[in-house]
Design a protein around this nucleic acid. Sequence first.
RNA 1: GGGCGGAUAGCUCAGUUGGGAGAGCGCUGCCCUUACAAGGCAGAGGUCACAGGUUCGAUCCCUGUUCCGCCUACCA
Length: 922
Amino acid sequence: MTTPQLDKVYDPKAVEARWSQIWNERGYFHASPTHPGQPYCIVIPPPNVTGSLHVGHALNHSIQDILIRWRRMQGHNVLWLPGTDHAGIATQNVVEKQIVAEGVSRESLGRERFIERVWQWKATSGDTIIRQQKRLGESCDWDRLRFTMDEGLSKAVREVFVRLYEDRLIYRGERLINWCPRCLTALSDIEVEHENIKGKLYSIDYPLEQDPTIRLPVATTRPETMFGDTAVAVHPEDPRYNRLIGQRVQLPLTNRTIPIVGDAILVDREFGTGAVKITPAHDFNDFDAGERHGLPSLPVFDRQALLDRQGLKIAGVDQAVIDVVAALPAIKARPKIQELLKDRALLTKVDDHPMAIGKCYRCKTVVEPYLSPQWFVKIKPLAEPAIQAVEDGRIRIIPEGWTNNYLGWMREIKDWCISRQIWWGHQIPAWYCRHCNKDLIIEDAAASASAAQSPRLTILQGATPIVGKTAPSICPRCAGQQFMQEPDVLDTWFSSALWPFSTLGWPEQTPELKTYYPTSTLVTGLDILFFWVARMIMMGLKFMGDVPFRDVYIHALVRDAEGQKMSKSKGNVIDPLHVMEQFGTDALRFTLASMASPGRDIKLAEERIEGYRNFANKIWNAARFCLMHLDGPRTATAPAERTFPDRWILSRLNQTVQLVTSELEAYRFDRAANALYQFIWHEYCDWYLELIKPTLQNPASPYAPGTRQTLVETLETTMRLLHPFMPFLTEEIWHTLPHQGESIVVQRFPIPDATWAAPEMGQRFALLEQTIGLVRTSRILLNYPPGQQITFYVAHNDPQQQDHLDPLRSYFAHLGRGTVNLASTTHWPTGNLLRLVMEGLSVGIAVAGDVDLNNALDRLIKQQSEQTKEIERLEGKLRNQEFAAKAPAEVITDHQERLTNLRRDQTMLASSEQQLRTMLGT
RNA sequence: GGGCGGAUAGCUCAGUUGGGAGAGCGCUGCCCUUACAAGGCAGAGGUCACAGGUUCGAUCCCUGUUCCGCCUACCA
């Protein structure tokens, strides 16, 4: 037979591109409800269509691909469904930047043409990340690629919206929401990131209307909002102030007076001055307090969070003050207001005060509470079943430590603001009759204070929406036929929430939906547990009547080698594409898998990836070794008939198959990867391949056919075991080995084979390993020159040792460096023989020539003292009566055995020392 | 403020029923031995954060402390 030749060094580039193409061409990844096998389905967390593959994706996708390839090989009917997310705000920002660079503003382009631009952009560069995913070897069913704004998904979105509206779970209301003054849109609560900063607490005196000499000191961190105050609150049981309740104070810098109210919820008597200003239009607490006391809201910021001239005027602010602060952002207005108050001797104190501010998760601008009409999902009724599903185990969160996080958040959940004042996204399917609502629809181009502001369309609170899957043709109230659609679009996460069923065809009852829903596992990072996972659970239960997935596997965040979050601005980003180019895709995948231990972030350093590149190369060379030794007959005798090294490696292989399988079942990718690494490198390569060389190189050996068989059988099985982790390398090698079938992708995953099991081989191997180790150590510490022949004697009072000496003897003969002779412990040859001891084994070395006996003596003495310490420790323990009485029997036996061995070693060490000293003449 | 996680070799981390402290990388020494120098062999290196407690015995269980990280939060 002709033996295929492999290059000395593995070159991933050539191999990866080739297989990636073949796999896709042959349709191995294509799923069908009619395929046999138990369904196993993963829907990918759709990456932003704007995106390119970062290392977080690489981890997330590698894990999914491991699961998918593993289950496919196990014979499941596998579907890994890919797709991308339209990512409303993010994408709009990207395209907007582009057109601004061309000198065009979004507003001047207009809504329709802008959206066209985004689609264009998506068509040209939206599949970047898809190409990169293929590069990573992801075995998705690319024929089923979905996009959160494609037609089917849009249909699902409208269906869900309408049904939730009809169930009164969606409503429109004017409430205080989080507003990003840069993106000019509402945000949901979780789209706000909190950051701790050093702020100040200002104490401002509000003079009493009745008697301006009496002043109520009010504490605030944001003096610039004071113009919107509509009351001051004190604690009703605070003896300092409670008699003032019902009176009015003069609001400084304005012509207004505002009431003093008592409010036990808002006011903490211990904090600040004990008196709080109430600004319902600009603070969430104050908004609630305002509702409790029936106070009006006076907005004084515009939507860019600049102090609004018109608003200030309405709020009765002194004209001189308006002239100073109008159109300033809060951060600039604050010192000016501080000055004005100081001039009037009303600012009494400024203290340092740690506080938290909210920032937009997309653009990091400080968000502002903003009063506006928005659409909300009433969330409690949806959250209840979603809590239950996790509590009763229908959904399992892994690692389970995150379960409480999930439950805690779900129990505290607040209504979800789903409307966004942007253009790119699913436009809300609600229409307003122009006739009925003519006073409530304001098309306002003139209100723009600056050029940056667009002419805007506002639909005031109180307008009557008509919600439906399509535009209405006639108004049910006035029979009008002119409508305008709600300009707002839905939160991106609204469509993402439907992903597990919308991608399978819902609302149609497709065979896919029937076969693959509920999906099997969701693989995701913690950062989108609430954004996405929780909402999928709620929507899945509501619209499918069943959970969207069984297991949620939450993986770590990838950080840089110093533990910093990777970000472009810090310049510490590890680019997976660059890494794949440099070290190979398999090395990257294996690295990420091996570091994916639960509950810990991954600190990724390139050296680590390099290490696994070396691992890939090691495997490559093991395969070369195999191929070089394949010529000649192979017979597949029963494992029990084969030689000791063969039986040993098969039994270790068997254990590794078991271990890798059980670790994958437990989502312990790190341990599965480490088990593979350990087995392949340190057992198969370091020991097995070395031990069988004498057999393979001896043409007369009767064992050669069995060993050749074991050699290739083990490697072939190992390739299948490793394939989910390193798909390219294993495919390439598998094809060079004798094999049946056209691709490793569709081979069966190894299953444990009872005929391979031979646990007793483990003990025998340990003995062999120790003997060889001792021989090697002896050689080193005697400084035997390399290449010089050396004669070892190994004691064989134990029949098992006799057995393992054959491979030992041929091993050393093979190395051409030494010979191994047998000796009975009672019959050591005489002469310059140095005996060395380890763990009950005794090896003798016939000392000849120029060797370093002093080094050996030092080492011997050190070993003796270490052993003495250990003996004393064990003796003391065994003498302890309570230990004898309470410790388990096997622990005691174990200790006694160890002690016996140590004592025997000690005796032999002592005689070695004697001999050495004699030889040295000391 | 509340909750969770972490602290083990120079670095990154394993260590699941409490009984001799491990791996990878790095480091030191020797070796280009016909699979692999992206390699082989041998070795150095750790009062398992600190203080108590439970136990015959604690890296492991409990309590407290310190430091770090994350999530969450309307103390103005």
